[in-house]
């Protein structure tokens, strides 16, 4: 993978952000339309693969994926969004899903960072400590 592709992808990702710093659907769509219209498919395919992965990372950075077991307090998603937006300095929106494997508690993933306060995590740490 040429280094210039990554440089161009970084530039395209920067263009994809809106005024709030989040990746905008409209901007990404506009970039894709421009690329497919101005470049040959064989030439644009590697760039699109890298761009796709980068956009997914950027979207993950803007999402707080909240997994929970047991009833989540109604105000919890908003609290998580506010907390992580302040922590990372960019807008983070909550995406809530239930995960019974956690037994009880919450696991939040923002980009590559994971915050786990579940019983499953406590048991896993207990197993690692006993081993």
């Amino acid at each position: 993978m040429p280094a210039d592709i990554h440089a161009e992808v970084r530039r395209l990702v920067a263009l994809s952000r809106d005024a709030t710093g989040a990746v905008s659907d409209e901007r990404v769509r506009a970039i894709l339309d421009t690329l497919t219209a101005t470049r040959k498919p064989a030439a644009v395919r590697p760039l699109l693969k890298v761009f796709h992965a980068a956009v997914r990372r950027e979207i993950a950075k803007g999402e707080a994926r909240i997994e929970h077991a047991g009833a989540l307090p109604p105000t919890a998603p908003a609290h998580f969004a506010a907390h992580f937006s302040k922590r990372y300095g960019r807008p983070v929106r909550p995406v809530v899903s239930e995960n019974a494997a956690l037994i009880a508690g919450v696991r939040v993933r923002v980009g590559d960072d994971v915050f786990d306060a579940s019983i499953r995590n406590a048991l896993d740490r207990l197993a690692a400590g006993l081993a």
């Binding site: 919890a76 998580f80 306060a117």
Partner: peptide, 14 residues
Amino acid sequence: ERARFTAAATTEIT
């Protein structure tokens, strides 16, 4: 109990 634990975990993370 699960709800109480989850609420406590939410408070712990935030």
